[in-house]
Design a protein around this nucleic acid. Structure first.
Lengths: 345, 345
DNA sequence: TAGTTTTGTTTAAACGATTAAACATGTCGG
DNA sequence: CCGACATGTTTAATCGTTTAAACAAAACTA
């Protein structure tokens, strides 16, 4: 391996001590240092193409200027976009971001957390899987700054940034009701995670509010592992029987993909026969023949707030801001009340 | 910040030297060490919840067990999937992966490379933007193991993993020709990057081979910044005039998205009036009313090979394997020769 | 019993930086 | 011409590990 150029090397070449080189390169004690010596040192540093060994620096300063981010799955477009925003946002404040995917797996999550902590990240932005309370708690006991993303645990006093999933679902169902849909169904996850519960509960509350009889068969819960046939089955059930749904809210973009693909191959027409709304935007929603109405999470704001909260929490770990952002319902053709089709006949 | 538990702390508590603790915890010199002492040390380490400071360890051992990956844009589903595969693949070999997005911007790319190098990653997997030759060369001079991903520079002797873009384009056009399309167009990038040139040249060669008159107007080049109106304009041009294209090959998933969205709003029918093929798979292709035929890059294989090549290059930087993988044309409805529509009428 | 091995543990330097404190000079006022 | 202050640079400890080498005591060996 090519010998690294260290302060010592520069010092030797310049005939000074390593300490002085450090001062010069970091612009410290600038009032004291001889300009000529400083110039010489800078010249040599440039000539040798010196660059700091951040490992050593971090070890000494106890600061890595790194934040660790754990999402469920970075290959999910939703996570990927968010991660990108956090990456940019962090950079603005001088932080490098490192990511990992937990796959909603507690063991994997814990392993990732460990790796990041042992590498001494300055703080963590986490989308923890269900059951991660103990892990989070231990991090707090170790005084490691962190903010939860997209999820939160009511039993824990942490900083978090979430969207109001309850309101988002509620608004979506309201929109469907208001535009004449009578049997609004939902396919979402059967999970402990509170943000998913909120999506479900928002739906239930809105359905109840319509005074229309609440038909349990219109809420379909599927596993978070996104099993294709299970989800397809749920959709088929919703669309059959004596009171088939005339509108469906999909609890995630994964669910939406699977269902829309299936709908493509069925004989029913969106939005005439069925209105659909999807949680989270993906490019694909625009490509469906009837562009899909969706619940738009304010990704920029989420990413921004996550980093800001973390910075605050880094200053003082007892400072745990809780940010709740509102999602926005973006109405497109798939919930068109008129039933007039824009798509090609 | 909560005092870190260091070897020294354990050593003190156990009444031994830090060195001995290190030996025990790393299972070195196991034959020599007293079992009882070892047990005691392990117990204390567990009790204090010790975990290695990887910073210090890396500084000493000159190994971080980290590989750095730079892609164009991690929020692009293609990159996101690949990155995920690399992440998993790296983990198999005991490496943590850290990512960054260059946005095809040379300055940003260089900055990212610097950051990763200063953090002493053990190796790099890079999708360099155009003009990155000097940067790559300097890395090689510093003996930093690296492998290029998806791209390569003929002027440089580096390890790389790419797909045969020329053959992929060629095959796609052939397929269109063979299924009766006569005026095959392409919209792709006007870029120096060789893999993009290859896509273009494969198209040109295949068109030439059909013996049909090569009409320059059927190849549209757009900027890599994916300007929406420029791309839409290119599409409109292809579809108008005296010899409108009856088939189009899209040079990337971004281009495809923009064009398919526009096609959705036009009166022409895919595949009857127009066949389309897209480079790179994305979920969205399945949601288009006429599922889109695409050129499938073997992501798993690419990710696997990238990591393997890097490991080889880490062992010996003069070892620069060049892997060329073949893409696969996945034929779906959008190039259906019969013109029979599966989509809803 | 003295010498050699084996067993068990410690010493100390090193990785590459940071930084308080000490140490030289030089300059100036009185 | 001497103490005080300013100027410029070095010393040395430290961060938390690793690891070769030294050391000490016990256990054989002859």
């Amino acid at each position: 391996m090519g010998k690294g150029v260290s302060l010592k090397v520069i010092a030797a070449k310049a005939g000074v001590s390593a300490a002085l080189v450090s001062y010069v390169l970091n612009n410290k004690k600038t009032d004291r240092i001889n300009k000529i010596t400083a110039q010489k040192i800078l010249a040599i540093a440039k000539e040798l193409n010196y660059s700091t060994n951040e490992l050593a620096k971090s070890l000494k300063t106890n600061k890595t200027n790194t934040i660790g981010v754990i999402v469920a799955d970075i290959s999910n477009p939703f996570s990927a976009s968010l991660v990108r925003i956090i990456e940019n946002q962090g950079e603005q404040s001088g932080y490098t971001t490192v990511f990992g995917s937990s796959d909603e797996d507690l063991v994997k999550f814990e392993k990732l957390v460990h790796t990041l902590v042992n590498r001494k990240v300055d703080g963590l932005i986490l989308s923890p899987p269900a059951g991660a309370e103990k892990i989070i708690l231990r991090l707090q006991q170790q005084d490691i700054p962190l903010v939860l993303l997209d999820r939160y645990f009511p039993s824990l006093k942490t900083a978090y940034v979430i969207i109001d999933n309850y309101a988002a679902s509620f608004e979506a169902v309201n929109h469907l009701s208001a535009t004449g849909r009578n049997r609004v169904g939902m396919i979402t996850y059967d999970a402990d995670l509170l943000h998913l519960q909120d999506r479900k509960n928002g739906y239930l509350a809105a359905v109840k509010k319509t005074k229309k009889r609440l038909d349990n068969n219109h809420l379909k819960l599927v596993g978070i592992e996104n099993n294709v046939s299970k989800i397809e089955e749920a959709l088929k059930e919703l669309l059959s029987g004596k009171a088939p749904a005339d509108a469906i809210l999909f609890g995630s973009n994964k669910i939406a993909l699977i269902c829309l693909r299936l709908i493509n191959s069925l004989s029913l027409i969106v939005p005439d026969d069925l209105a659909v709304i999807c949680f989270d935007y993906t490019e694909m929603l625009d490509l469906f023949y009837s562009p899909v109405t969706y619940i738009k999470q304010p990704l920029e704001a989420i990413g921004y707030q996550a980093v800001q909260c973390l910075l605050q929490n880094m200053g003082d770990t007892t400072n745990t801001p809780a940010i709740v952002l509102q999602a926005e319902l973006v109405v497109q053709e798939s919930t068109n009340a008129s039933g007039k089709l824009l798509r090609k006949k």
